[in-house]
Design a protein around this nucleic acid. Structure first.
Lengths: 144, 144
DNA sequence: CCTTACCTTTACGTAAACGTCATGCTGCGG
DNA sequence: CCGCAGCATGACGTTTACGTAAAGGTAAGG
């Protein structure tokens, strides 16, 4: 099955680095920090499809400006083992904290986007006006 | 006029630090990096209402995960002097770059929020189910 | 006048997130 | 069998964004 083929496909660290726009050093660093733990073939790292997905989550977390430690907490939310209700309650709390932070970020992004679009529009208007003025001057200085 | 009173109000570095949740060190650091340039009364820094607004912009940029250098570029967009069309064109370009980056971030935030809300819901469901099971067991072990 | 509470500059310290060697094993095409 | 490409570990270097201490000026209050 195709899905199985995808699921059993493995990657070397170099392949993943190229594919995801990271460096092998960076991926090893994330492993040192406990964000990911690939299988080994001897000493060589073997990444599964799930590992790849995990790296994509990490990369997105970084784009959002989270620290490696924060991303580790974030990944724990995906890893949650449904036994041990106490831990689940704790994760639920962490989850809502992160949601609140992202809601602030959503607001910030929207506001900044609105402001930048306004600035861009102003710049566009300004340049258009400057162009018209220049044209008018040219027209005056070169009738015909 | 009230607006004038607000506009002419000044702040010391300590006041702004407390008000904005920064440290004086941080504000001085931003000055070293050219993000802000308050007036001086002798050696002491005097911040205007506009300086305060600028610091708020800087703080928001930081929340969004931008580096100090990126925030400096960002502030240049607000400072733009409408003369010198070449510079304006350059700023327009920078502006659209930043907009594109924020659009990616907007997508990332929305996606992550959706996932976390889903996880939170799953945790909630799970805990509710566990609670019901516990109650049922208790009911069975203590009839009456 | 003295303390207290600010402010200043200078400078060294530090945590985070990698980059950059150095050194060595390992499979493989020629 | 040789050399190259790619992987590994270990260790030191670098940049960013401040923290923190040292040493001192200044205005207000008791």
């Amino acid at each position: 099955m195709i899905a199985d083929a995808l699921d059993t496909r493995t990657y070397t660290i170099g392949e993943l680095a190229r594919a995801l726009g990271l460096t092998a050093r960076t991926i090893r660093f994330y492993e040192d920090e406990g964000l990911i733990a690939p299988l080994r073939a001897g000493t060589a790292r073997i990444y599964s499809h799930a590992d790849r997905a995990r790296l994509i989550l990490i990369r997105r977390g970084k784009r959002l400006g989270f620290s490696v430690r924060e991303i580790a907490e974030f990944l724990a939310l995906y890893d949650a083992d449904p036994h041990q209700a106490e831990k689940m309650r704790f994760l639920g709390h962490k989850c809502r904290e992160r949601i609140a932070a992202l809601e602030v970020q959503l607001r910030d992004v929207r506001q900044t986007l609105a402001e930048l679009r306004d600035i861009d529009r102003q710049i566009g208007d300004h340049l258009a006006k400057a162009a018209r003025t220049a044209t008018t001057k040219a027209d005056r200085s070169e009738p015909q």
